[in-house]
Computed example of a mutant assay.
Amino acid sequence: MSLALSVLPLVFLIGLGYLLSKTRMIPPADWKGIETLSFRVLIPAVLIQTILKTDLSSGQFGGVGLALLGTWAVIATLAFSLRLLPVARLGNPGFTTLFQTGTRWNAFIALAAAEQFTGASGLAVMAVAIALLIPLINVSCIIVLSAFGPTRIGPVGVVWVVVRNPLVQACAVALTLYFAGVTLPVPVAETLDMIGRGALALGLMAVGAGISLRRLARWDWKVATALILRPVLAPAVFAGFAAVIGLDAVQTLAGVLVFAAPAAANGYILARQMGGDAGLYTDVLTWQTILSIVVLPFWAALLLG
């Protein structure tokens, strides 16, 4: 019962965002500003604060890092292998979108779920996941879109897109301060704490605002394939790596949340800009978001009892 109650705040916040959007109490144009604020300011503040408070020694998180990278490699390979399927209707735009929705993850939902289910220990794993995976995911997705889309971006363009990512920038700043042994002044630390209090809630409401129930009717084999990759197969692969490496239950759950969360919304922008199937991305993202509301507490109940 306590686990069921713990997931309700996540559901309520996503539902509140949906209602605020559909009733137009907050106009659609304003949600773009909220998403930008969350992506560029609020979530980076949470990351900086979390990384600076975390013990990032290899002994503490080396196994987690191996499991995260191993899972990403398996899912990325499976997603890329879809290119080899003898299905003429897939095409390059559909293939690049399936690769993106299989490998990207929504930090808003994953961070909120980790905070709700695992507390500070889970947030520390999330910080490690973001530092390791987000640059890797951005580079790989841009390379795939460049290779199989009408838009070509050279190595300099790939580096520039990754460097401009606010989450990557936040991780770089925090890791630099961490390994330099810098302690933030109390007013700065308290400011980050105040910013972080509303960051995850606002991010979840923004996710809810992007849900379109009408798009749930747009179902085909490509959507089904994307849902098998994430959120069904990916978290199971991570759980397998975690069992082999010997991660504890909290570390395992936090890593599972990374791969059970829906794809990140910024992949939709890349799909539009670089010749991917943006409509398919929206369909998959809608289904993944709905399913994650069920999948996340399922894994929490399985791993935490």
Rank of each mutant, 00 (worst) to 15 (best):
residue 179 F to I: 11
residue 58 S to C: 04
residue 142 I to C: 03
residue 95 F to L: 02
residue 263 A to Y: 08
residue 255 G to W: 04
residue 170 A to E: 10
residue 281 Y to F: 12
residue 8 L to F: 09
residue 218 R to N: 10
residue 175 L to M: 13
residue 193 D to T: 15
residue 35 E to R: 05
residue 177 L to K: 10
residue 182 V to L: 09
residue 228 I to F: 07
residue 58 S to D: 13
residue 46 V to D: 00
residue 166 P to W: 13
residue 71 T to M: 03
residue 5 L to N: 05
residue 228 I to R: 01
residue 176 T to M: 15
residue 210 G to Y: 01
residue 154 G to F: 02
residue 80 F to A: 08
residue 49 Q to G: 08
residue 297 P to W: 02
residue 43 I to E: 05
residue 132 L to D: 06
residue 264 A to I: 13
residue 215 R to M: 05
residue 22 K to S: 08
residue 15 G to D: 06
residue 67 A to M: 07
residue 154 G to Q: 06
residue 246 G to T: 14
residue 181 G to E: 10
residue 295 V to P: 05
residue 18 Y to N: 07
residue 133 L to R: 14
residue 260 A to G: 01
residue 286 T to C: 10
residue 97 T to H: 04
residue 40 R to D: 07
residue 148 F to S: 01
residue 177 L to A: 10
residue 3 L to W: 03
residue 155 P to D: 09
residue 163 V to W: 15
residue 100 Q to Y: 01
residue 41 V to F: 15
residue 246 G to W: 12
residue 126 M to C: 08
residue 45 A to P: 12
residue 221 W to A: 04
residue 148 F to G: 08
residue 154 G to E: 07
residue 91 G to P: 14
residue 238 F to Y: 08
residue 22 K to E: 03
residue 163 V to F: 15
residue 179 F to G: 05
residue 304 L to Y: 05
residue 283 D to L: 04
residue 73 A to P: 05
residue 234 A to D: 02
residue 147 A to R: 15
residue 30 D to M: 15
residue 135 P to C: 12
residue 45 A to Y: 12
residue 84 L to K: 08
residue 77 T to N: 07
residue 59 G to W: 13
residue 17 G to W: 02
residue 148 F to D: 00
residue 197 R to T: 13
residue 244 V to N: 12
residue 193 D to A: 15
residue 105 W to R: 03
residue 46 V to C: 09
residue 275 G to Y: 08
residue 78 L to H: 01
residue 51 I to H: 07
residue 109 I to E: 03
residue 275 G to N: 03
